[in-house]
Design a binder for these strands. Structure first.
Lengths: 192, 192
DNA sequence: CGGAAACTTCAGGAATTCCTGAAATTTCAG
DNA sequence: CTGAAATTTCAGGAATTCCTGAAGTTTCCG
């Protein structure tokens, strides 16, 4: 840790902190931050040395990161040790993180909510609770489906789209008008 | 806790669990889940009773939720106690959560990254680290700006838009062509 | 094969976070 | 004002999570 350039040290500490606020432990956050900025893959001993953690802690942290598909072991020729790196593309990292969180947290939540919605409510309080759960279910599902779909776009398409921000809504209105002019009634692209 | 309908109890337990995976403590998650499904505002004693927590724990939990702007105290006529409720609209909750997380975690991260980018790198490793930080900075900033902008749309506009998913990209292409046909060169709506 | 290098597992101590009851503070009806 | 109800604060014990070193397992070179 003391041997890291201040630039890198601050980054690593910050992401350790952030990790712990997002339910990822500090060590794991720091390890990933280090891999992220490293110009080459690192082995477990190098990581333990750089961050001042025990070898076994690093081993567990890397295992955790692999289970999130955020890094994978990689061999260098003539070296028995495993080397780890973060993907080159930040979008890949972002997407992987989103996919894993979806699988681990969002899907189970949707399953739970769907189960609750199948129950027969007894009384007004339960009926109301169920209605609220339906609203939450629909919101979470909408966001998830949207994310799945948009996640398929490659960054070259997605980035300009995001830079438009809410302007897309205006373009959409325009499209409405044009298609109306062009040939009368038809279904909106993905209306309810 | 034992007096809650199973429907509600499961929901509350699930969100306690989810909360703890997202860096929010279990108690706070459970309190909010309970407020969320409740048909009327609840006071601290009712919450403590329903969830089996101490009164002081509930007090701290509610304070935390207020600091996140997820609930606010409310008085009933002829009752000195404070009553708490979650907003009626799930979008409001979602947006508030996003805004607070942005303020607490994203902004400080961007500040840290900008600071790092201002440093003069000494050596290739630092130059590379800085480049990586720039990529992360740009991604986080893009997502944040996009979110700020799109968050201004009201759900009535936003929901149909989200249901289109990646189709918006196609509409955009169409728009490209039309504006080209309509009058030759002009800037793309929000290109780099 | 033998054994050393690399990696993993895991029991238990360290550190952190959580939760409670008691005491302090605030609020407000009378 | 007074005092009781409501709320908040907070020290310290409880529970949880984290981290380590030692022991165990796997891998593969020679």
């Amino acid at each position: 840790m003391e041997t890291l350039p201040p630039l890198v040290r601050d980054f690593v500490l910050h992401f350790g902190e952030m990790g712990s606020r997002w339910g990822i432990n500090r060590t794991v956050g720091q390890i990933y931050a280090l891999l992220f900025v490293s110009p080459r893959p690192l082995n477990a001993d190098e990581i333990a040395e750089a961050l001042g953690f025990s070898r076994s802690n690093v081993s567990m942290g890397l295992k955790e990161l692999q289970s999130w598909r955020l890094t994978q072991p990689h061999h260098l020729p003539g070296d028995r040790r495993e080397y780890f790196a973060a993907p080159q593309d930040v979008w890949t990292i972002f997407r992987t993180l989103a996919e894993e969180r979806k699988k681990r947290e969002v899907e189970p939540t949707l399953t739970m909510l769907r189960g609750a919605l199948l129950q027969t409510p007894s009384g007004d309080a339960e009926r109301h609770a169920q209605q609220r759960m339906r609203e939450m279910h629909d919101l979470v599902e909408l966001i998830t489906l949207w994310f799945d779909d948009v996640g398929k776009l490659d960054p070259a398409t997605l980035v300009p789209l995001m830079k438009m921000g809410s302007t897309v809504a205006k373009v959409l209105e325009m499209k409405q008008k044009i298609t109306q002019l062009a040939g009368g009634r038809q279904r909106t692209v993905a209306a309810e």
